[in-house]
Design a protein around this nucleic acid. Structure first.
Length: 191
DNA sequence: CCGGTGATGCCCT
DNA sequence: GGGCATCACCGGT
């Protein structure tokens, strides 16, 4: 079945990374609702050396080859999760890493999940986002039109409000301009 | 304020 | 067995 979300994100990873800026994520945790706005993204595509899909499909990356609008959650550095949104057509191993979000509501839950961090430090990094929203391996392959984790696309930001730069924390394809973030937003992971 | 580094487990070669 | 789409802390400035 093809959802509206599925259709909107059935584009290249960099295009999807732009579209996803400003989108909302609604996460229901123990009956409490948390809403955040996506403010920083990175695109990863299968002909991209830095992508998990660069060397082809594996059990871990199979989800990235599936329909757009599904969550790809992976575990890294022995202690952190990162959350991606699958993009592109079925058969294309591509996705967008959510690197930073701005809390919109449900502050108490976020504060609890990120204690003792406060303010911008709560959600200005990909693993921090996962901790704040209680995202772990259980949400891998989750369809983001369904509770308890829903993605809502918002009207595109104007180009003036989007900064493009190189990606963070990778050692290959370090010059590709596939990181996107909202201009002047204090939750950005780094300048 | 900034750079270096330890923590810690899973995936893939 | 190497390396990792990270984070927080520590020490020197």
């Amino acid at each position: 079945m093809v959802s509206q979300l599925n259709r909107i994100l059935d584009v290249s990873a960099p295009e999807a990374a732009r579209i996803l800026l400003g989108a909302h994520l609604t996460r229901i945790i123990n009956g409490r609702t948390v809403v955040v706005k996506i403010v920083e993204t990175e695109a990863y595509d299968e002909d991209d050396e830095a992508s998990h899909t660069f060397r082809g499909m594996t059990p871990r990356t199979e989800v990235m080859y599936g329909p757009a609008g599904v969550a790809y959650v992976y575990f890294t550095y022995g202690m952190h999760y990162c959350f991606n949104i699958v993009t592109g057509p079925v058969g294309r191993g591509s996705g967008v890493l959510v690197r930073a979000v701005e809390p919109i509501s449900g502050f108490e839950t976020i504060i609890t999940n990120r204690f003792p961090k406060t303010g911008y430090q709560m959600t200005n990094g990909p693993a921090k986002v996962c901790q704040a929203l209680s995202i772990n391996k259980d949400l891998n392959r989750h369809d983001l039109v369904l509770e308890p984790f829903i993605l809502t696309i918002k009207p595109n930001l104007s180009d003036n409000d989007i900064i493009i730069s190189t990606r963070v924390g990778i050692s290959k394809a370090i010059d590709e301009p596939w990181r996107f973030y909202v201009a002047n937003n204090p939750y950005i992971s780094k300048l």
